[in-house]
């Protein structure tokens, strides 16, 4: 098969390149002063609380090195939890602990860690190992999410998350990211997670890719990927669309999870959403972004109305 595409063809497919994304969308629609709202997960969380957007429950926040020593006993009281650097990017530095096992903890990726490992990780994170530019950071400890049944058998060692690109408040494209053995439980496509493009009108699987190649079965569990259909799709999109008002960012990636009990919850926001979603959907973002740009609706429609428009406008998947 061919390994290269000509730029003319990419243009015809409406693919959004990194330069165009940075210059024509991120720089134009995202105000610099708003970035800290999404780059700091703690601020995102507090903001989400103000706007009544559900997020996983926060159990513990560590801000200084001296708190690390006493963190062990407080963590021991929790059943399972996720530790996240507040300013981390690309899923770096996130540890998911399933349960306690004697003196040790069991990680979702299968490893066991002792108290010393845990404390070292906390201390590294606080010192800024995972933050941009090595700035001092904070650690969030959150409740675990139990994935909705619609995803059972579709994920390996991790909870699937749903990425929605929201442009000027309109959801324009969506995908589910399924972690795999190759991706080591992480949901990043370039690390080997499976990206499943979702039809914007129904939440149904359009196509799935791993390492840029289309596939039909989950590589670890063997379940057919085209059977995926996200329940409560409209509510989920409305939740994503509301993040536009919440942050004031025009070009936004919203990462959601579907909890068995609590339904869709906001995991994190991204002011520079990746371009891989286009490959998972098999179509370019550019025509959709242009359609939203061409809208001249001065009424400032609410989230529900915008979602209704997007579900209809982008229904055919192209």
């Amino acid at each position: 098969m061919r390994r290269w595409v000509s730029p003319q063809r990419l243009e015809r497919y409406g693919m959004l390149g990194m330069n165009a994304r940075n210059l024509a969308f991120i720089q134009r629609y995202n105000e610099r002063s708003r970035y800290p709202l999404v780059d700091d997960k703690l601020r995102t969380k507090l903001l989400a609380e103000d706007y009544g957007v559900p997020t996983p429950a926060l159990r513990l926040v560590l801000r200084a090195q001296h708190q690390v020593r006493r963190a062990g006993s407080r963590l021991a009281a929790l059943e399972g939890f996720a530790m996240k650097p507040a300013k981390g990017s690309g899923g770096k530095g996130i540890w998911v602990i399933l349960r306690r096992d004697g003196e040790e903890w069991l990680k979702a990726s299968g490893g066991r860690v002792g108290l010393a490992d845990l404390q070292r990780h906390l201390s590294n994170t606080l010192a800024g190992l995972y933050s941009l530019g090595g700035n001092p950071d904070a650690v969030l400890v959150e409740d675990l999410i139990s994935a909705d049944d619609c995803f059972s058998g579709y994920s390996f060692e991790g909870v699937p998350d749903i990425r929605v690109v929201v442009f000027q408040g309109y959801p324009v494209m969506a995908m589910v990211r399924l972690s795999t053995h190759d991706s080591d439980g992480k949901a990043n496509l370039h690390q080997g997670a499976v990206g499943v493009g979702l039809a914007l009108d129904s939440g149904r699987c359009l196509r799935a890719v791993q390492f840029g190649q289309p596939l039909t079965l989950h590589p670890d569990t063997g379940r057919p990927l085209n059977a995926i259909k996200v329940p409560g799709w409209r509510e989920l999109l409305v939740l994503a669309a509301r993040c536009h008002e919440m942050t004031g960012l025009g070009y936004l990636g919203v990462d959601l999870v579907l909890d068995r009990q609590q339904g869709p919850m906001l995991l994190e926001l991204n002011a520079r959403p990746g371009l891989a979603i286009q490959i998972a959907n098999g179509c370019g973002l550019l025509p959709r972004l242009r359609r939203v740009e061409a809208l001249a609706d001065r009424r400032r429609p609410g989230p529900a109305e915008r979602v209704a428009w997007a579900m209809e406008a982008f229904a055919d998947g192209r």
């Binding site: 165009a20 890719v209 840029g212 490959i279």
Partner: peptide
């Protein structure tokens, strides 16, 4: 700094899109 076209590496990165079309 004003170039908004594709990077050379993207011509390869996005090659999977061809199958769909």
């Amino acid at each position: 700094g004003q170039y908004t076209g594709y990077k050379l590496s993207e011509l390869r990165r996005f090659h999977a899109i061809e199958d769909e079309w």
